[in-house]
Amino acid sequence: MIIINAVIEVFPQIARGLGVTITVLIAASLLAYIMAFVAGLSKLSNNVFIRKATGFYVEIFRGTSLIVQLFWLYYAIPMLFNIPLGTNWWIGVIAIGLNYGAYLSEVVRSSIVAVDKGQTEAAIALNMTSFQRMRLIIFPQAVRMMLPEFGNYTILMLKSTSLVSLIGLRDILYYGDIIRSTNASITPLVYTLVLVLYFLLALPLIWLTRKGEGIAKKGVASS
């Protein structure tokens, strides 16, 4: 009974952070998806400069830790652009979005490369322009292959939204930490609830990822 009462008391307090966790996840995912396609396609560009610049972006973000990038942007953005602190929500979104955009751009690039060469040749034979080729033939086939990885990376993004509590954003973990610091004896309960809440948020994403796996496999010859 004591535990149930504690849950009833603690849960609403932690759930106050849901708004921030979810909005950061959605905004960061959108940014990451956009960056993934922009960078993934740029990596396949004929222009050497565009390829090199994209490669630089991808390697910087994949080669360092998200937590380091988050802190770096947190201190650097206000300095470089002379804007006041307090735009932490944007900094969290930008850090997570750019980081996972770099990882996902590799997924986009490798999926496009993985589309059978005969498809390109057939499109050329049909006298399609290179834009038509990409839009009508290659892209639709590549996107299907990307779906499971996009799902997996979105789950990773959900996990990494917990980092924004470190720059003072009031997400689920932030409220959990507040309760822990005022009432240490219920710490196990607090963090268990935080973990369960993250898991509940992840469940639909897990389900979507499995759906994506189904779509990616459908109609593909299992060589």
């Binding site: 996990k159 917990s162 980092l163 959990g176 196990p188 963090y191 973990l195 993250y198």
Partner: peptide, 14 residues
């Protein structure tokens, strides 16, 4: 599927 950061806090604080 749950954040390693929270898991660390759980092990360290809880």
């Amino acid at each position: 599927t749950t954040p390693p950061l929270v898991q660390l806090f759980f092990i360290y604080y809880a």
